[in-house]
Design a protein around this nucleic acid. Structure first.
Lengths: 198, 198
DNA sequence: GCATGAGGCGAGCGTTTACTCGCCTACAAT
DNA sequence: ATTGTAGGCGAGTAAACGCTCGCCTCATGC
């Protein structure tokens, strides 16, 4: 941020710019994300945009941070709510909530995974993965897995695998795999992997 | 291709251009992939580049096609060789070969997954996934899974999950997960998922 | 009600970069 | 040897786009 908006109208403008940034990203894609278009969509001049954002990357970063915070919040809430349950029902509930967290803003998810260079979102993605890996590790400890390294390894594997499946299912909507089936199979994958004896 | 090279020296130049394209992509990243740099790295003028490639995307496409063909070839060969074996040893062998296929050109893998918009490689990636899904489906049929839809679903799940784990392991080299452990855990994930009773 | 500075504007500058075009060279066939 | 053609060159062009700068307006404190 180049300077912090003091008056209410400038705060509102910054808000409009971020919202417009999201809209431009969805409507025109990553290549079509230009500062002139963002300013235009916000009903603001390019010069005003640069009063508060040092460069183009800065406003894109804010847009991406907003979105990934939202997704992370939904995912964390879903896990916190459901990690207490037991048996296969818990796996279903988690998978379902995970899909819901991604489906809630599928338009951004699509642009972000298909058009955006992954490096732009790597930081946020790693952070979320780490959070979820910690939760999964704790869950494994509850299951009686005593080796801490093994817990980390298995948590890493199951979290990355489930993440990928959820994202790809939401984006690709494979004809052969209904939503309910996807939930069941994702839960099954995680369940069999984590529960199987060594 | 704008026109096809007839003489030997022009064919050699096209070769040099494609090789230079790969090098520029690795050395300067996706953003640094400019036609001038590619021509320069190939010891050729920009004008000559445009004799044989209609635009920048065309030469990038060739570079990407080359690489993905190589990866696909290694993966397909690895699976064809090992799908006959039985028991957990087969899972290990496949996982190991898959990692090897990605490790063979990790520099391009890194640029392609971290900097390149995924859409540029979606076609090739889908094609490879489909090939492997077919193989996995056949393997499931051999295991006695009679429902063709279920075979498709499970093949989709296991292939995407394993793909993601292999790519991420090669790129991230997580400290807690040695190569041997990664092979074992990937095999375990696939094995428990596919072998578990319904 | 006036002075001050924050807020906002938008034409345009400068750079980057994909791509071209007129010209030269090397080769092969007659 | 000559001539036609493919191959190759590289300075230059055009367009896009990030970003600035000089100017105007409005809100707030005294």
């Amino acid at each position: 941020m180049r300077k912090t908006p003091r008056q209410a109208r400038s705060r509102a403008m910054v808000e409009r710019l971020v919202a417009a940034g999201r809209d431009v990203l969805v409507a025109h894609g990553y290549d079509g994300f230009t500062t002139n278009k963002v300013a235009d969509a916000a009903g603001v001049s390019p010069g005003s945009l640069y009063q508060y954002f040092p460069d183009k990357a800065a406003i894109l970063d804010v847009v991406l941070d907003r979105w990934s915070d939202e997704v992370a919040e939904r995912v964390a809430a879903a896990l916190a709510d459901r990690i207490g349950a037991t048996g296969p029902a818990m796996g279903h509930a988690v998978a379902d909530a995970l899909l819901a967290a991604l489906e809630a803003d599928a338009a951004v998810l699509r642009v972000v995974t298909e058009e955006l260079p992954a490096a732009h979102l790597a930081r946020q993605r790693r952070a979320l993965e780490q959070r979820v890996i910690q939760l999964a590790g704790a869950y494994l400890a509850g299951l009686g897995v005593d080796d801490a390294t093994l817990r980390q390894q298995r948590a890493w594997v199951v979290v990355l695998a489930v993440e990928q499946l959820a994202v790809r299912w939401v984006l690709d909507q494979p004809a052969a795999l209904s939503r309910a089936d996807a939930v069941a199979e994702i839960a099954r994958l995680a369940g069999t992997y984590l529960a199987a004896p060594d």
